[in-house]
Simulated scan of single mutants.
Amino acid sequence: MCKWAPPSAGLRPGLPSQSLHQACLLLVLAASATLAGFPAPGSEDEAQKALLQAPAETAHLSWDLGRRARSYNHLEGDVRLRRLYSANKFFLSIDSMGRVRGNRHGNQTDSLLEIRSVSMGVVVIRSVSTGLYLAMSKKGALYGSAKYTADCQFRERIEENGYNTYAALRWRRGDRPMFVSLGGRGRPRGGHRTRRKHRSAHFLPMLPT
């Protein structure tokens, strides 16, 4: 704090000099700027420690909000009952003979599917009524499998239009993925003829009614 000093010669007694007033004002302004502009001691270390101890999902939050969601991040073991409704208006079904086809009616029992996550973004699709798994062969043919094999794993991805695509995890056609797809008459298309952009490969997972 500034202390009052005896007046210099030639100045009116009882009043501090003009230069002393200015010095005190500058000192007060400098102290205010110091308190406002710098953090309290140890605050930076504490902030860094809190960031390092934050959960992984918090650390990735800003990145997740800044990107466009393109795939479901399912936890392993997640199970959903759905009917897969294609963009060309067919419900995917697996009959008791292992034939994969599309039908126009969503109330048929073999179109009720269990979609189970086996790893991040990878699912297995199984008919509830027949117990057969949706599978794709090396040549891209869809079939119902009585046993769970590597042919039964599909990579599930949500596209920009809100529909899902299901690409075989095990097999590819050259450098391109092969997708689950239903043609214009509800028949499955060969995986080697499918592309991500095709409407026939786009499905809505619908809740059973």
Rank of each mutant, 00 (worst) to 15 (best):
D45W: 07
Y72G: 10
S32L: 15
S32F: 12
A40K: 12
R70M: 14
V100G: 01
L113M: 08
A59I: 06
L75T: 12
L84R: 03
N73G: 14
V100R: 04
A30W: 07
K89S: 15
N88L: 07
E57C: 12
L35M: 14
A40S: 14
T58S: 13
T58I: 07
R82M: 06
M120I: 12
N73V: 11
L29N: 11
F91I: 03
L61V: 01
S96Q: 02
L113S: 00
L92Q: 01
S117E: 03
S96N: 05
R67W: 08
L75D: 08
F90P: 00
F90R: 00
W63P: 01
Q53M: 14
Q108I: 04
F90T: 03
M97A: 10
A56M: 08
E76K: 14
D64Y: 05
N73D: 13
R99G: 02
V100K: 00
G66P: 01
K89Q: 15
Q108H: 08
D110F: 00
V79Q: 09
W63L: 13
N88A: 08
S96W: 03
D95H: 04
R83L: 05
D64G: 09
S71A: 14
N73M: 13
M120S: 10
A59E: 12
I115W: 04
L92V: 01
D95Y: 00
H74V: 04
L65G: 05
V28L: 11
P39I: 10
P55D: 11
T58E: 14
D110N: 04
Q22G: 06
A69K: 12
K49G: 07
Y72I: 09
E44L: 11
H60P: 05
S32D: 07
A23P: 00
G37K: 06
N103D: 08
R80V: 03
D45P: 00
K49C: 09
E114Y: 03
V118I: 15
A47D: 12
A31D: 12
E44G: 06
T109Q: 07
S71V: 13
C24A: 08
S119R: 13
G77L: 05
L27P: 02
N103V: 09
G37Y: 11
R70Y: 14
K49W: 11
E114G: 04
H74S: 11
A59G: 15
S111Y: 01
L25A: 10
L92C: 02
A30R: 12
